[in-house]
Every structure is written in C-alpha cells, then in structure tokens.
Amino acid sequence: MSTISSLRSSVDDLREADRTRMMLFALDNLIWPILLVTFVLFSLLLPEIFTQYRNIRFLLYTSAGLGAITLAEGICLISGNFDLSVGSVAGFSAMAAALFLTEWFPGMPGVAGIAVLLLVGGSIGLLNGVSIAKFGVNPFLQTLSTLIIFEGGILVLSTQSVYGLPASYLWIGGEDIDLPLFRPIPLAIFAMFALFLGMWFILTKTRFGRAVYAVGGDEDSAAEAGIDTNRVVILTFVISGVLSAIGGLLLTGFNGGATPTLGTSQLFPAFTAAVIGGISLFGGRGNVLNSLGGVLLLGTIGAGLVMLNIDPQIIQTVNGIVLFAAILLYTFVQRYRERLLSDL
C-alpha cells in the first residue's frame, strides 16, 4: 500500500468520506426536492385543480420554449462564459424564418423555414463565439451587443406579428400527439425532454462535452492538456445559438405565429432556471438535467400564481425573488461544499 493512499486508509475515515460524498451529491441535486416541495405546496393551496391534467399540460407546455433557451444559456455558463443574447436570438431567428416562409419565399415548405431558423441562430452564435475566443472580447460585452443588435433587428424585420405560417413549421411547437391510453400531449413537451436528454448526453458522454466542462473549470489546464480551447468556446456558442433558435421555433408554435416580443422576456427566466438548477456562474459545474428542474420550478410557480388569480405582472417580480433566493442559497451551498471538501 502506498504512502499516499494510506493517508486515509482507516475504515472509519472511509465511512466518513462516503457520508460526505452523499451530502455533496444531495447538494448538487437540490433542485428536485425544492421542486417537489413547491409542487406539493401549490397542490395544497389549489386542491384538486393544480394537479389536473389541464394544469400539468399547461405547466409543461409553457416551459418548452424556455427549456430550450435555458439549455442555450446553460451550456455557455458551463463553458465559463455568458450569453445575454439567447432571448433576442430566439426572437430574431423566429422572425427571420417566419418572414422567409410568408413574405420572402412564400410557398416554401416548413422544413426550409426550420433550416433558415437554425442557420440564423447558429450564425449569430458563431459571431459571438469567434469574437470571444479569437478576439478576446469579454463575453458579457459581446453578447450584450448582440442582444441589442438583434433585439433591434427584430423590429427592423417586422413590427407586426407574422401569422399564416405553414402547418409543418408550427407542428413541433404547436401540435398535440395522440397517445394510446392517454390524453393528447403537446409535441413540444417531448421536444423539450429530448433536447435536455440530448444535451446531457453530449455534455457527459462525448469528448466535446467533457472539454466544455474542462474549459469552464480551468481554461489554462484544459489548454495544457492539449484541448483546443478556442474551438470549444466557438462551438459552444454555435450550439447556444442553435438552441436559442429552437426555443424560438417552439415559442412560435405555441403562439401560432412569430411575435416581435417572442424572445424578449426569455433571457432572465432562462438564466434563473439554469442557476437554480445548479449550473455554476463560474463555469465547469452543473448538470443540465437539473436545469430542467429549474425550468419546471419556474413553470410551477408561474402556473400556480396564475391559478391563484395573482396579477401576471407580478410573476416577473416573483421570478426575480426566486433567482435572488437561489443565488443566496447557492452561495451558502458553495461555502458548505468547500467545507465538506476540505474534510475529505
């Protein structure tokens, strides 16, 4: 037995370490018990109605677009970056694709519109990524400028909502799917779960995904280990742009058309959901599946407040309070984590 490993060889120490690890696991996945408690709380406040199919459906359906945009923010945060432009990218790409299908090239199939939408989102992500990785622009400033440019860009394209889109374009965000032995479920809900699972898979099972964590955890170390950190950052922003655009697609389907304000109010909830899901603002830490928990928590609170007949204007304030509480909580969790780690 080597001297190094004999440092903590005694059985008692190991048991202690196991307990500490279990504690760390619980801290890392805190969102799920919080979601459960919140859900139970609203179910008690709104007996019978809150747990109805209609409400659960509403809760999940309204979460789908936000879910995609939360993933877009989440992957940037994990890579140690920041993306303020997720909401405006969603809105701009949705508007560009809607005009493409109705005014610029009417009669084109919906799938062409989806291709345009993804291309626009990916290109804006590429612009962000290249500026940040190659030119060393601060991510906050870079994505703030793209936020402003494309927020304005939406209004340059159209100040009116665009309707009359092909059914095939609206299908994924707007249609229900009939299930045997169950009531119809919006396709967007499946799309959301698929996106979360897909991104979880990419981030945990592929070389690129582990490189995203490595770059976010310690960029210098990642470079010393031979990772092309610029490539990883650029690709991260491209994916973020594509996910934002998919968010725009889901929201278009939900609304039945592209509205100029479709993505505007999405940035802060997406950010909040990612953070309360435990994705670290400092990069390298967090599980995107937990950020789904964050999305569902915001959805639960939103649906609950609506059903309690609380003024919808208050919901944003409530989201802000949730974010504030989450940041406070995670600051304490982080300190507690470090204490636990130093005990290991």
Binding site: A211, Y213, D220, S221, G226, I227, G284
Partner: peptide
C-alpha cells in the same frame, strides 16, 4: 500547476483531450 480540472474525475483528468 498540475493542470487538473477539479470538477472532472480522476480518469477524465488523466485522459483529458484524448479520451
């Protein structure tokens, strides 16, 4: 500086950039 990424596992660190 060892060039380790705290959040990744022992094996992931050893094979970082060449998994």
């Amino acid at each position: 500086d060892l060039a380790l990424v705290d959040q990744l596992s022992v094996a992931e660190n050893m094979f970082l950039g060449r998994n």
